[in-house]
Design a protein around this nucleic acid. Sequence first.
DNA 1: CGAGTCGTTGAACGGAATCAATCGTCGTGG
DNA 2: CCACGACGATTGATTCCGTTCAACGACTCG
Lengths: 195, 195
Amino acid sequence: MNTIKEYFNLIKPNKVINVSQGDYLFNQNDAAIGVYIVQQGCIKLLRDTIDGNTVIFYHAQLNESLAEASLYSDYYHCHARADVNSIVEFYDKESVLKYLSLNIDSSLKFIEVLAKQIQRLRLLLELRSIRSARERLFQYLKLMSDDKGVFLFASTYKDLAITLGMTHETLYRVLSQLEKDKVIMREANKIILQI
Amino acid sequence: MNTIKEYFNLIKPNKVINVSQGDYLFNQNDAAIGVYIVQQGCIKLLRDTIDGNTVIFYHAQLNESLAEASLYSDYYHCHARADVNSIVEFYDKESVLKYLSLNIDSSLKFIEVLAKQIQRLRLLLELRSIRSARERLFQYLKLMSDDKGVFLFASTYKDLAITLGMTHETLYRVLSQLEKDKVIMREANKIILQI
DNA sequence: CGAGTCGTTGAACGGAATCAATCGTCGTGG
DNA sequence: CCACGACGATTGATTCCGTTCAACGACTCG
């Protein structure tokens, strides 16, 4: 639903790229040559901060686009890394811009995708303004879980910690705290909110 | 340059609204009825977190649009408050969407504005991942200052503290620390980086 | 099998939040 | 017009929570 793929099908990808686990699709400050759509696997957008920490902006999943924001920028502003072996389609910038300028429906869809991105980023920013680690995690889980209170995570706890702006040690601690207080239950790769 | 105003001039605003200092143009969870462009003054987009803190997403200045991201959403996701007496133009959602669907150039410009927003938000998120308050402030100043190292702030120190995700007390402390260490100089409403 | 990484817990430290108090300024209303 | 209140700017003292450093078991992958 939040994918642009369906509105993007009149244009052919320039190429299809295999990215092995751990490899970078592109790096921060590389020339921004185009956008990508994930066909298989998952690409993570991240940046390294001056003090050696990491920020994760986005996990691009199946059919989701990435680097859209770089359409109007000369270089990429973050790294794109594959956590698992992944396949992505590449669309060069000129073709995309031309395509958008000819297909108003796609442009509108693109606007929608970008607007959603903005809301997602604002949400992350809001979360970061919650000082308490426990509360920050709890609010995140509440936001990200489905109506049954189930939160599935594709990624690792370490990544979750990064997303939440805390160390993984702190995350483990607040997780077991919340579990002890019967606020959550943990299973294989899901967390269940007790409401 | 980052304003949509110039590409938005074929459409007439539904109305022009005066917002007095301290008043809210709209509140979080109000029905999203349209977008606004600042004609005079400054509108701040903000949200309150669960623990009583505040997040500032954006300061919309002259000719900048606000609430664009709400075009595809049923309600506003944040508050919009005027810090000074301000005047804004209002464009209802349907007209804007219709206008965009008829004017490909405006759509593309809109995409550009949204892309810039995303990059700004990512920057803020990156800043939030810097743990040390001093370093966080320093990086912010480096990013936001001009090539002479001058950072002008329209707003107050308190708002700056909120933007940086720290208390105003902490901000004052690191400010005077940086000043003592001759990293910055402070004047009326500017901060000058010594490089 | 060993290297590497994730998940987990413990102990100690440090830095930012919190609480508190003061000063200056600005606007307002009696 | 001046007193008063509100709020921004500033600094001090104390507390507390998250980081940091460290160690260990489990698991995977080459």
